[in-house]
Structure formats: structure tokens, C-alpha cells
Design a protein around this nucleic acid. Sequence first.
DNA 1: TAAACGTGGCA
DNA 2: TTGCCAAGTTT
Length: 353
Amino acid sequence: MDADHHPFPTNALRQWYGRAKRDLPWRGSSDPYTIWISEVILQQTRVDQGTPYYHRFLSAFPTVTDLANAHEDEVLKLWEGLGYYSRARNLHAAAKQVTTGPGGCFPNTYEGLRSLKGVGPYTAAAIGSIAFDLPVACVDGNVTRVLARFHGITDPVDSAPVIKAIDRSAQGALDIQSPGEHNQAMMELGATVCLPRNANCEQCPLQAGCNAYRLGLVDSIPMKSKRTKVRERYFHFLVLTDGEHTVVERRPAGDIWQGLYQFPMLESDRTLDADEVLAHYRIKGAVLADSHGPVRHILTHQRIFGRFFEFRVKHLPPSIADPVPWQDLERLAFPRLIHHYLNKKMLAHSKKV
DNA sequence: TAAACGTGGCA
DNA sequence: TTGCCAAGTTT
């Protein structure tokens, strides 16, 4: 599967990192808590997108105890718009694990870190190596791409044997004198030089030994076998209001946006109109005050068409859910699709006043 | 093991 | 517009 037996140029990588590394907010600290937060925020997330969340999150919860003592709604609100909300729920649960666990402090072994909710092989290696100098290699998307190219691996990198080989290779290349710096250097190379497209091979410290470069395969490595299929869904939100209050509910487990809030929602396999939505909910005396959408919301695996129907009633029926003052919505976390709608709503309201 | 889980940027 | 991708984990 690999086309060479070149030793990995660890020294060249370290020297490159010393002069080329970016100045990122979470660099230079060895506090496992702040490293943990940054690593979770950066899962499947770009630095530019995650950085403001990192600052807000640590301002709200400076220590693991602060996080553990928070309410889940507050944690989710700080995560609003960042996506993959299980990260926030797991972060909160893991903070409780830490503070109520043995010694009440952060685990400092790989297995101890792995036992925390939301901490998988990558994150355990990252925290372990950066905070505690544990000799464990990080294998993320960057490292996979760097090593697949360096070794000239043309097989799909999402197959089990290749994952295993890359893992071994990463561990073999690790600089055990400074595993944290080495891991960050590997990822930094993938993030700034060995890019998915338009790799900048001319400034790469690994060029001399890189098989993909030698064979002209940089643009075709790494290869992936999985294809993403897109599901279409039609969400119809019932925005019920008596002028002062509205009605929201919590998204259930086992679907997208778990734990976030939404207006009562009717899903269908096609777009419905206001009459059909109202017929479903059977609200007496409701008057259609406004409708919005369909709004297309594009996700990796699904395409959601959202429609919002605002109905005016004299009195909110207690049968659906608890009425909430409009102002209280700002403390709740909503999916992006709904957040955009609310922004528009609030803007219109503030213009009238 | 494959599929689910968000959002935004880019070509 | 569409598909791919980004410091992955869970079930």
C-alpha cells in the first residue's frame, strides 16, 4: 500500500513549524481545560469559524467547575450557530465527570481522557500530548492527508486497513521529545501548506521525501470512497402568539438539532400551505398574521425547506406547550434556520417601534 | 461498519 | 448549483 520506506523528516518539520506557525489564541498554554475546549470547538470546524466561540466560551466558563455548574441551556446558547451540538452537550457532561470524579481534577492519562464524553482518539491524543507530554500521535484530517501523500497511499483513506496504517505511521513519526509540538506541527502543515486543493509543495519541509510529490499524485491523494447522499425534508413551524407570548418546544433526541428549541413543527414529505398546517394543529380562532419561506437550509446530508406561519390568537391554548414571553427567546438556543427567521422578525419589530 | 450529526467557505 | 471539505465522535 505504501510505495516507500523513507524515514519521516521530523527535524525538518519541527524547524518549519518554529518559523511558520500561526499565532492562535489557544497556543502557548498547557492548561488541559482550555486545550480541551479549543480541540472540541475545532472538531470539523475551521479556525476562523471557531475562534470567536472559543473566546466567548472561556469568558463565560473560565474553569471546568464553572462549566460543570452551568445549565445546559446556557451551554447550548453559547454553542448556537456552531453546529454539531452534541459537542456542547458532551462538553457539559464531561465537565461534571471531571469535577465529580477522582480528585476532582482533569485526567492526565490517555485512557482517562478517553473516558470523558465527546473525547475520542484524536482529542485524547491532542490534550494528552499538548498538556501532559504524553507520547501519543494525533491523527486528524490534516495528519491523514499529510501522511497519505508522504507515503503515496492511493487507496481510499476511509478504509479500515489504510486508517490503521496511517495510525501506525503517525505514531512512528512522533517526536517523543516534544509530542505536543510535533502533533501541532503536523496539523499546521496540513492546514497551511499540504492543503486539500492547491497544495503549496514549494514551501513544504517534507517535499524531498514525499511520494505524492515525486509521482505527481498530490492532487489525487487522499482518495475517499464514501459518497454523501442528500435527504430532502419539509419543516413547517407554527409561530403561535397572543401578542406578548409565543410557544416553543425542545427538539427531541435521535434527530438533528437535539436539545435546541423550535416552534411547534410539522414535518411532511412536501411543502404544505397554511391551511394544512392549521388543520393539523386544530387551533380555534387562529388568524394567519404572516408567513415566511420556504427557506432552503443546506446541510451536509440533508436539504431542509423551512416555512414559518405566524398565527394570532386571543388566548394561547395550554395543550401544545408552555407560553413564553417573546423576550425570553433570546436565552434559548435555536438552529440557524430559525435564528435567521427570528433576526428578521426582531428587526421588523424594532422598526415599527 | 456505516450513517448521523451543522455550518460556512470555496471552486 | 453542486459537491467537497474543516483540529471527529457516537451509535
